[in-house]
Design a protein around this nucleic acid. Structure first.
Lengths: 218, 218, 218, 218
DNA sequence: TATGAATGAGCGTTCATTCAT
DNA sequence: GATGAATGAACGCTCATTCAT
């Protein structure tokens, strides 16, 4: 019991590596896909970056496309669950919830999601399947979440009646814009300050949704 | 003057064709780049669509990249002037101006601009120069226009004070979202109704910007 | 008119080559396929042997398989027409016709047909299409020809009644055996003398088919 | 004898498996080689069919080629002795012997021999050694057997004088043709009925070899 | 002994680009 | 000016073979 914890178990390096390999590969692939795009990324470079040979990729993924799908799924899945939990568990007013939601979104903008988003957009022509997948798993899910927030506000008499279907994309749009812009227009004259933009968005939006005292009806 | 009459006709036909060629080529290329992306588009198909041989492309463009640049530049140039004219000439209230602006934007969403936008986004990694160009010629110009509209509203006491720099992308974001989505998520479950979304956006936005009577000062 | 005939027209070298290319390619491919088999033959070697680059093959053939099919068709087609003409035009007795037929077959055994035959047999598993094609274009056609010869002999009272369907492969079998053996067992202890084998075959066969005087019926 | 009882059982089970492995492997390999050809057969599939891992093959065979050789040798060895026994022990007339011989051959056509034959033919270019081996072990042996049968008929005054060397392949040819055709032209329009073909062959052949009464001399 | 993991070498195919005409 | 022909350089993918366990 004494010396065990210190043992590095070098003999397990192999098996452990095997378990980790898919993750290492998707990580390497993610980085390169995000940087150069799907078509411009050579499998050989992905392999090199992961420290394996080209053929090894094919032990874990059937094709370049399959690797791409894995990258997307892996990066997408865990992000949305958090957001959904947040909304369901939130206790305060809906305006506060919306502000918190934007803070979460702002945090996500610093992570890998913008790169992912841009990859989906960029490769949608080449991989309609992927666009479909993401439409279902990403976009729809997020829009539904936003709709639920607005509905909550209406139900609590904080927001006025609005078209839920139409207002959801309006609410998400600046986040989308910031994400795409970050990937597309870095190193150009177009530079958005995410904090300011989202703050301004929240400000205008909440005022636009607000149910004013004189409009309230029992 | 002596030998001219004999060859005038055929030469004219030739030169006219020759002048039109680059345009035919960029038009064909635009369609295919927009549809399939840059990497997935084969020069052979561009040539076929333009009714010329592959080698002919090289008479007019040094490389596939040069062709792409020409496509973007050509398609970008003439679109924004109209919008600027509209704003400067508009006579009514600023809310009405903004609504008109969105109508114009909505019209543009049916044209080639979304395809162009998506091309820029998709290929920005491969062609940083173009992203830069478009940031200057497209995005900045449009944002500046929006800023001018809002400033007009503030100046006329129709809008409250807001951060012009931050509010401009908020105003444009839904248009951007609709444009990109149109290109990316057609044939998926995510389908936005541009009219409804923009109407809702205008509604919330104008209410959010409105200077309420009780807030007015001076 | 005077100096024209002497002109070598070197400027046509290109276009002429272009016309000849497919033939040069199938010739090179034939040689290598026959020598090493289909799978073992590298397109690069075919190209090298034809003096062109690998990519040039794809101007004329869609794939390695298509090249193979072309090789087979090209080598097959003209051989059978001759044999059919011979049979239809022959004037002498049917035994003489059969002997002549074997002489023609013997000649074919010195040509490219045995290599072709072996290719078909060897690659039939990989290219069922090809086996089908050859069954229809080669084997069936040849068997039908043989049947016609025997029917002629029966009609003229030279041969006795036999099962045409069954006797045709019996008649062709030694030719087939010699062809395959030539390709398969050269450099081994099994060496057939085609002349002697076919002579013996004709001898036994004609005696076996002969309608003897005492059996003849009006 | 002393320590044996204690480990007999487990070791036997092991050794038996171990002893059986090569046979299981060659059996699996035979099936796949026969079905798809040598080059098209993946060692991975052979391993899967034998229920072992790919690497295990290399415990027993140095290479894919070595496996192929083992397959051929193993399948070749035990087949021919029976036929030889039959001929030596036969008591009846030589025509009856020949008919019996064809019956045996017809039976062999339903077994694995045609597949083996085709493998040899197909891969003779890649494995000249094997073609040589088979020429000695298979073809020569069989031809010699046929020669002995014919010689027996001549000696007994049942057959006329013929060139033994040349008549042997003639006699075997339809068997060869049927074997190869079965492997090559299944699923095509060319379908031979082995029973009818061999019956017809025997009929024509025996009549062709028969020593007629009026020709008999001393 | 047996195997999962890893890879080097290679092949068919594609395509932007060049060139002779 | 225009083009059919040709190609070099890649790239995705495969598979027999090896190795650490």
């Amino acid at each position: 019991m004494l010396d065990q914890p210190d043992r590095k178990q070098p003999e397990k390096r192999w098996r452990r590596r095997s378990d980790a390999r898919p993750g290492e590969l998707t990580a390497a692939a993610f980085a390169l896909f995000a940087e150069q795009g799907f078509a411009a990324t050579r499998l050989e470079d992905v392999a090199a970056r992961a420290g394996v040979s080209k053929a090894t990729i094919y032990r874990y993924f059937d094709s370049k496309e399959a690797l791409f799908e894995a990258v997307v799924k892996e990066a997408t899945a865990p992000r949305f669950a958090e957001a959904e939990l947040l909304v369901e568990a939130f206790q305060g007013t809906t305006p506060d919830l919306l502000r918190t939601f934007f803070q979460v979104a702002r945090g996500a903008l610093s992570g890998p999601l913008p790169a992912l988003l841009k990859m989906i957009v960029s490769e949608s022509a080449t991989f309609p399947k992927l666009a479909s997948l993401w439409a279902d798993l990403g976009v729809s899910r997020m829009l539904e979440l936003v709709r639920r927030i607005v509905a909550r506000g209406i139900a609590r008499g904080e927001f006025r009646q609005v078209d839920l279907e139409a207002v959801a994309p309006v609410i998400m749009a600046p986040v989308f814009l910031l994400g795409i812009s970050k990937q597309t227009f870095s190193n150009t004259s177009v530079q958005f300050n995410p904090d300011q933009v989202l703050a301004q968005h929240a400000d205008v939006l909440l005022r636009g949704l607000e149910l004013r005292a004189e409009e309230a009806q029992t």
